Amino acid sequence: MDFKINELSQYERYKFLSALVIPRPVAFVTTKNAEGKHNAAPFSFFNLFSEDPALVVLGFSHRPDGRSKDTINNIRASGQFVVNMIDKSIIGAMHIASADFLPEESEIDFAGIDLSPSQAVDVMRITESPVSLECKVFEIKDLTERRALVLGEVLAIHIKDEIFDPMTRRVIPENYSPIARLYGNEYAWLGKRYTKAIPTRDEIREKGLQAGDIPED
């Protein structure tokens, strides 16, 4: 089946693309408004963009009624936010925070999570999160009246001790399992891992590697 994007409705584009480009990590973003109240909201249009500068990207859309979301309002005003990764310890909090709360309400009060001070930004991180990325706005790109991309420059990283090996200065993959968004109400955890270095041209010729192969060492 073939489709041209301009022949699909906005709803169909979202459904097709969000169901096909999977899995996607979920950013549990904390921000602070002008009154000092913190907000926490999950976003699955999110990924790492670059390491130098260290950039993450968040995709925003307006609410169905046309209102912009509290998170991007706070980011525009303060220029700061924290991306908190999600594992099983806070998966319930993520689902609770996805509900449509009133602007004067904080998802944090309902989600049962705690906040801790950040190192480099004036926005608190989620204490229970396995990883928190403290960010300042690098650029906000308004794509349409309803959609925007936020590029955030990572200024500091918080990693829980149990997923970090101080000797090798590496993440312990067996101890780190962030949630992945699929489509609709579907989510997943990381499945079985495999390890394989990028093959050389000689290995490709000698072993006759083909699409679909997971060659063994």
Rank of each mutant, 00 (worst) to 15 (best):
R76V: 09
S44I: 02
S68K: 14
V56K: 03
S18I: 06
K32H: 03
R24T: 06
F46L: 01
A99F: 11
S89A: 15
T31F: 01
H38P: 02
S89Y: 12
T71S: 12
H38R: 01
G92A: 13
N84K: 13
Q80E: 15
V56W: 01
S68H: 14
D52K: 08
V29F: 05
N74E: 11
S18W: 03
N47M: 10
A41Y: 00
N47Q: 09
R24F: 01
D65R: 08
S50M: 02
L48Y: 04
I72F: 09
F81L: 11
V56F: 03
L55M: 04
A41M: 04
S89V: 14
F28R: 00
I86K: 08
P42G: 08
N33P: 06
A99W: 07
A40C: 11
A19G: 14
P53D: 05
F81H: 10
F81V: 08
H38K: 03
F60S: 02
T30L: 04
A40H: 05
F45V: 03
I96W: 10
G36H: 06
K37N: 04
V57T: 07
A97N: 12
A54D: 11
V21A: 08
D87Q: 12
P64N: 10
N33H: 03
A40V: 13
S50P: 06
S89Q: 14
A34S: 12
T71K: 05
A40T: 02
L48Q: 05
M94N: 13
N33L: 04
F28K: 00
Q80H: 14
R67L: 09
N47P: 00
H95Q: 15
A97I: 13
R67K: 15
G92M: 11
I90G: 14
N74D: 12
R76S: 13
H62C: 11
Q80M: 15
L48A: 09
E51T: 09
N47G: 14
T31P: 06
M85H: 14
S98Y: 13
R67P: 04
S68N: 11
G36E: 02
V56E: 00
A54S: 12
R67C: 07
P25F: 03
G66T: 11
P23D: 05
I90V: 15
F45I: 06
V57Y: 03
P64H: 08
Q80C: 13
V26A: 01
P64R: 05
N33C: 08
A41W: 00
D65F: 08
I90M: 15
V26T: 01
P25E: 01
T71L: 08
A19H: 04
S61T: 06
F46H: 01
P42Q: 06
D70N: 09
T30N: 07
N74I: 07
L20C: 09
P25H: 04
V29Y: 05
S44T: 03
S89T: 15
V83M: 12
A93L: 12
N74P: 09
A97M: 13
A34G: 02
A19W: 00
I90Y: 11
T31C: 03
N47L: 07
G92E: 15
L55H: 04
S68E: 15
F60A: 01
Q80V: 11
E35D: 11
E35L: 07
E35P: 00
G36T: 06
R67Y: 11
R24E: 01
F60H: 09
N39Y: 04
F49T: 05
G66S: 11
S89H: 12
N84M: 10
H38T: 00
I91G: 09
L55E: 05
I72V: 14
S78F: 07
S61Y: 07
